[in-house]
Each structure stands twice: as structure tokens, then as C-alpha cells.
Nucleic acid binder design. Structure first.
Lengths: 268, 268
DNA sequence: TAAATAGTGTCTATAAGACATTATCCA
DNA sequence: TGGATAATGTCTTATAGACACTATTTA
């Protein structure tokens, strides 16, 4: 710790007693993504109090100091907003923290943003705390309507999700405990926003060791418009995909992605 | 940003009055990595006050509430600890936040960890605030000696750095403004901890569009043990490497990496 | 029966890795 | 002159993607 200068007395004191510092509030926010009818949806709440009253925002709330870490707070907030007492098969991971001093007009608030992926979740229950929450399709959503810097957080979350689909078995988090290869392909197509070659995708996902394990069962019926029954699989033990499932090249030479390279805020 | 409604100020102020909640302190910590004599080093400080007095820790400090975001605080702390008034060519990015309630015995402290990469930096100046700071080789460092949960943060940082080398031009952040391909290879070998094939590496990095740009110049002298002069390059405009520079396969089928897939803490 | 789809086969261009070769420079 | 090294070339194997094809099921 730096030696104090006279002008820095308060900082010096705080180095030994953090309680002497002016407070910063800490929240846990959640970008909850799910697939509904083949389209990617995000859970948003309508704010009932200022600031940004009436605007859409990511679900979230303040950490219970001394009681929970950010991940636990995010899980709690998600359960409250969806009205689900228990969160089945929800994959939760940290996205990053957003702490610009003026991002909340009330005071300095640092938000630890999380990503949550889940299979098709029901609509939030009416008549509960979650009454103001609803699933919104991400591709028809106007980012300008979001409160605070939540448009930026959502954009980073989508970037992160798209990137993780390449290197981790994350896509299985959008599906029930067992699923078919075409269903898995639908996840990739919905998140990446582009069609994939059915045949090549099929061969490729099955060639990644530890990604999928056959259950031995097949679907009860064929596709709604015909076709044979598909084999069912469950997620394998792999936590990284080797080799990765790379996205189709977005162009001859893409050199400038829309946001930060890692999906996290960075400074030069 | 729309302005908040000047509604019932006391109502929401009371709801969010920091004194109504047990406070959470926010720090910005930095995992600063540099290459010295071909080996990866991390900047650590010896703590001069409890808790963990005398133990090694990552440099960091409390955020100035209402004045700076985590990235700015991290840059400030790094400058203070290295004794450098200015940080030349330092690449700073957020790693993730660590907020377990008991990670600091004094109170609930949330740490926003950052990664900093820089070319060979000088030793911290004696006689300054940075007197207690020093560079430590990461491969001979005993993680058990680190204070708080900094061993975990360091491990996550190294995982992140190793992964980013595959997909981003991050390696150039360890080198001066212009460099040679063998120097770049030395960065990859030091961070990944394994030798790379010189010929194949050379051809591969030059094949990635936007990664390297020739300056037209060469080194003044050949290698210390002979060999021709090497051509010099500067970083190109690419922010993502297409195709990525994948690490040599760590084994026939690695299914369980040491920590979280993304280098960020996650919960099931 | 017609259409759609699961799953497999085949071919080609490209890339990765092992290895060899040449040219250049230091001691 | 010998040894080390930058840079390039060659060869083999693996992979990605385009496309074709068969089998199965629904309407």
C-alpha cells in the first residue's frame, strides 16, 4: 500500500479501515437468455421506480453484504424475477463488471453482470414480484429503450455467448437434459443468427470428443414436416471443445469487431 | 441518457441509502504481467499492514467513489506501484470480479481484477511508494504465499492470458512498438510454457491477415549466437486472429481444464 | 405419393505439422 | 570455419466445406 501524503489522509485511513471510504453500491445484474420458438429471448423487467421509471432493464438488485457473493445474488435475483422457486438446469456465469461513476444518477453503483442460459422457461408469473418481467426477442429489441448502460451490457453478453458457443458446450445449456443434433443446430443458428449446413454440422459436433453422448433413444416422431426420427444425445464430460466449432467466416478479412475483443470493457 | 425523474427523493434515497445496508467495499486489483529475460513475471507487493501483513499480494486499492471506474482505478494503482508516472504501451483489460463475503476478514470486499500486459518494465523505484513492489517469476512462485484469494485470481489471469494469445494480438502487448517474429515466438513460448516450431510458427503468424505489418527494417545485428538479421514488424489492425493460433494439443482428449472455462468464476 | 429431413458418403481446397534446405551472421 | 538461426520450401496428413445420396417419416 502506498505511503500517505497529507492531502491523502482519508485514503490512507481507508487503506487500513475500508469503512472510512465513501460507499459504492454493488448490484448483481443478469442477462438471462433462452430460446423460445426458435428465437433468442432475453428477460427484461419494467422499472417501477425512478430512475428510468417505465423503461426496460435487466433484472438485478443489490448484494446482501456479508451474506452472498455476486453469483449467488444473481441466482437469487433471477429466481425472484422469473417467479421460479427453483432454477432447473440454469447455467450461470459472470460476464464482467460495469462501474462508471455516472452510470446510475443516484450514486456510484458497480454492477456485476452475469450471463444465464436456460432451456425454454415459462413466462414470469403474474401476480408476483415478477409481474413486470417478460421475455423479449433480442433481434427486434431496440437497445435504446434500455435503462442505464444495459444496452452495452446486453451487447457484450451476446458477444460473449456467440464466442462461447465456439469453444464450450454452452449450447447444451439452452436445451433439455437430452436433445437431438438438429435441436442443437437450431441453438447455434439462433445465437449466431445464420443458417448452418445440416450435414456438415452433424458430422462435426459428433467428432468433438466429449461433447455429445448417445442415449440410445430416438425421438418418438419424425420432424413436423416429415423426416426420420432423430437420435437423442446428452452433454458429455467436455468443458472445452477440441477442436472448436468455428463460425462461418464473417467476411474476407474482418479486422474490427463491433465491441471489445473479449466482450469485456477494456481501456487502452 | 435520459435524466432521472426528480420524484419522491426521500423515498428512493432511503431505499438505497448506503447506511441502510451494510456496506461493501470495492477494490481494483491488477495482475500485471511482463517478460523479463524470457520468463513471465507478475508484479506483487508485500503487504505492510494487516490482514496478511508481510505476505505477497496483487497490487490494488479501493475505488475512489464517484470519481473513477474500475479500469481507471486499476491504471492508477499500477502506476503508483511501479513508480512510473506514465504507463507506456500498457494493455489493460478487466478479468472479473471476486466477491465472496469472507475473502477479506475485515469486511465484505469486492475486488474487480484486471489484467495488464506490458513490455519489459523496469524494477519499481526504491524510495518511492513502490518500494514494496517487485516482479516475481510466475513459474517459481508458490501460490500458497499469496494473500486473500489472490492465488485464484492469478491462476484465472494466466488461464485468460494463455487463451487470449490464441485469438487476439495480445502477445504484441508484451513487446516494444516493433519487433521480430522470433521475439513474438518467445512471448508465446513463455506464456504457454512450451516450445514452438520456429519455421511453422513463422509462416503461420504471417498468414494471419492484419496481425503483423512489416516495417521494412531489420535488426542491426543477428542473433547472439549467430544467424541472419530478422525483419521487424509492428502490430497490424486486427483485433481478432482469423484463423486463431491454436496451442499444440495438450493431450489426446483433455476434458477437464484446471479452472473455469472462461477464466471467470462460475456457478453451476 | 410427394416433400421434408436425419444421417452418411465423397470430393476438393485448405491448413497444420514434420522435416529439409538455403542464406546469413556471430564467434 | 563451424555453429546457430531467419526464412522458405516440400511433403504428408487432417480438416472444412460443398455437394450428393439414401433412408425414413409426415402429410
Amino acid at each position: 500500500m502506498p505511503t500517505p501524503e497529507p492531502a491523502d489522509e482519508r485514503a490512507w485511513l481507508a487503506a487500513y479501515d475500508p469503512r472510512a471510504f465513501p460507499p459504492i453500491a454493488v448490484t448483481a445484474d443478469v442477462v438471462a437468455l433462452t430460446l423460445r420458438a426458435g428465437a433468442l429471448h432475453v428477460l427484461l423487467v419494467e422499472r417501477g421506480a425512478p430512475p428510468y421509471r417505465g423503461r426496460l432493464a435487466l433484472p438485478g438488485g443489490f448484494l446482501r453484504a456479508g451474506q452472498e457473493d455476486p453469483a449467488a445474488a444473481a441466482a437469487r435475483e433471477l429466481a425472484e424475477e422469473t417467479g421460479l422457486a427453483e432454477l432447473p438446469r440454469v447455467h450461470l456465469q459472470q460476464l464482467g463488471s460495469y462501474g462508471a461513476p455516472d452510470r446510475d444518477p443516484r450514486m456510484h453503483v458497480l454492477s456485476v453482470a452475469h450471463l444465464a442460459f436456460a432451456p425454454d422457461l415459462p413466462d414470469p408469473q403474474a401476480g408476483t414480484d415478477a409481474a413486470a418481467a417478460a421475455w423479449h426477442p433480442v433481434d427486434t429489441l431496440d437497445p435504446g429503450t434500455l435503462a442505464f448502460d444495459h444496452a452495452r451490457i446486453l451487447a457484450d453478453a451476446l458477444d460473449r455467448a456467440r464466442a462461447e458457443l465456439e469453444n464450450t458446450p454452452l449450447a447444451t445449456a439452452f436445451l433439455p437434459a437430452d436433445f437431438t443434433v438438429p435441436e442443437l443446430r437450431a441453438v447455434y443458428e439462433a445465437v449466431w443468427g445464420e443458417p448452418l449446413h445440416p450435414g456438415n454440422f452433424h458430422r462435426k459436433v459428433l467428432s468433438v470428443p466429449g461433447f455429445l453422448e448417445p442415449t440410445g433413444a430416438t425421438t418418438e416422431r419424425g420432424g413436423t414436416r416429415g423426416g426420420p426420427r432423430a437420435r437423442r444425445y446428452r452433454p458429455g464430460p467436455a468443458t472445452r471443445l477440441h477442436p472448436p466449432l468455428l463460425r462461418p467466416a464473417p467476411g474476407p478479412a474482418r479486422t474490427t469487431p463491433p465491441t471489445a475483443p473479449t466482450g469485456l470493457p477494456s481501456t487502452p
